[in-house]
Design a protein around this nucleic acid. Structure first.
Lengths: 224, 224
DNA sequence: AGAATGCTTCGATGGAGGCCGAACTATGCG
DNA sequence: CGCATAGTTCGGCCTCCATCGAAGCATTCT
């Protein structure tokens, strides 16, 4: 019986259906209130509250109090990454879905991952940015090229380095099994996509659907 | 309440301490019998057997019957990756270990991950192989360079592509947060390291400790 | 064939934890 | 100040499941 980091503790937190639903909902990136999460998980408010305090104690969540609301969010990208990994296995192992279904297809193309874009589009984008030498990639380390700050500023994206959080990070994509761009830059790009109305978030889902003109605009700016 | 792949089901499988210990033991890469796993998990044989059938049903394990033994092993690299991801979170979140401890240090330097080498040594090796253009890396895809087959053959490693399993794969390292080399080539290299007695596997641990001359030999061949 | 080993199945037990309603605290609003 | 909304805490219920001993198969050894 060997000792290691307490993996069972973490896994059992995710292992309850109600909590798993909550975490899944939070993978959308936006912080949610306890009531919203209760609804999402299909349990009563007291039950949800109990789950939330367990997730907090386990270090999987952070909370921000705003007035009488308490907004819960994932504790960080590493937690998001873990959930993606578990999702990948569940997906691979689950014999359930013989037919992927349209919504599933949309998820594969583009979806929100924590706070940035994931899916085929996102993977293609990172590839292209590296090709164009705007980003310098060395395995999981991604750095801005000297010219990049200026370039992104020109499209209206400010890449000022915020404290504590890296500007760029590689994040593994469960549907494509390749990396896409996370970090503040990844988040800023997603913000722009939504702000410019190139795409909208599917209600109650992580899927992101581009409008036809939006798709063209996105490709021109980021895949061009 | 949204529907997705059944992540809670998978996570709860890992969420039991006995099962987590078993999976952890199997991360060593060698398949183990039910009795060994019972010992590892600290439970009786009937209990272990019950856990094993659950893990089987969940698709996390494979089994191979040999005579009156049944050898259990991880179902695949994806499962191993998931466990590494959970381990990473548990490690980051667990405030327990104020002092890393020597054995932990050894794990960080070099350890077995499923069937290949992980840790600082392994990450350095992949970097070097890419630098020397023996491997061509494009994100998570790693391919053999044309010259590589011949090169590896010269050091006694046969890289014939087996069915179904890729020769090269990138595998994320939880201690270094960079990738190391998995796939049949990664496995073959670990085999060689053990066969040449450059290093030995620590008893009851995933740690791999190089002997001083073994370390030099390894560095000459793979980091040279 | 008989004994020994490896493993699984069965049945019973007990404990952990998910669940909700009701009561309690806290913040905001008129 | 009282009412409404958001959230947590408490107590009790109930289900699930991990656990083990004993018995049952299967395989190998002698």
């Amino acid at each position: 019986m060997r000792e290691g980091p307490d993996i069972a503790r973490i896994a059992s937190l995710v292992g309850d259906p109600a909590r798993a639903n909550m975490l899944n909902a939070l993978m959308g990136g936006t912080a949610l209130t306890a009531s919203e999460l209760a609804l999402e998980a299909g349990v009563s408010l007291p039950t949800a509250s109990s789950h939330l305090s367990k997730l907090m104690e386990g270090g999987l969540l952070t909370v921000a109090s705003q007035g009488r609301h308490r907004y819960y969010g994932l504790a960080g990208p590493q937690v998001a990454g873990m959930i993606e990994a578990i999702t990948g296995v569940a997906e691979a192992v689950g014999p359930k879905r013989v037919r992927p279904g349209p919504r599933d297809g949309a998820m594969r193309v583009a979806r929100v991952c924590y706070d940035h874009l994931a899916g085929e589009q996102a993977v293609a984008m990172l590839d292209r940015l590296v090709d164009r030498k705007l980003l310098l990639r060395d395995d999981n380390e991604i750095r801005l090229a000297p010219s990049a700050t200026e370039h992104f500023a020109a499209i209206g994206i400010n890449v000022a380095a915020k404290a504590r959080r890296p500007v760029c990070r590689a994040c593994l994509d469960w549907s494509v099994r390749r990396s896409h761009l996370a970090g503040t830059l990844g988040a800023a790009i997603l913000d722009k996509i939504i702000a410019e109305k190139w795409a909208r978030r599917e209600k109650d889902s992580r899927a992101v659907v581009f409008s036809p003109p939006g798709k063209l605009a996105f490709e021109r700016v980021f895949l061009g």
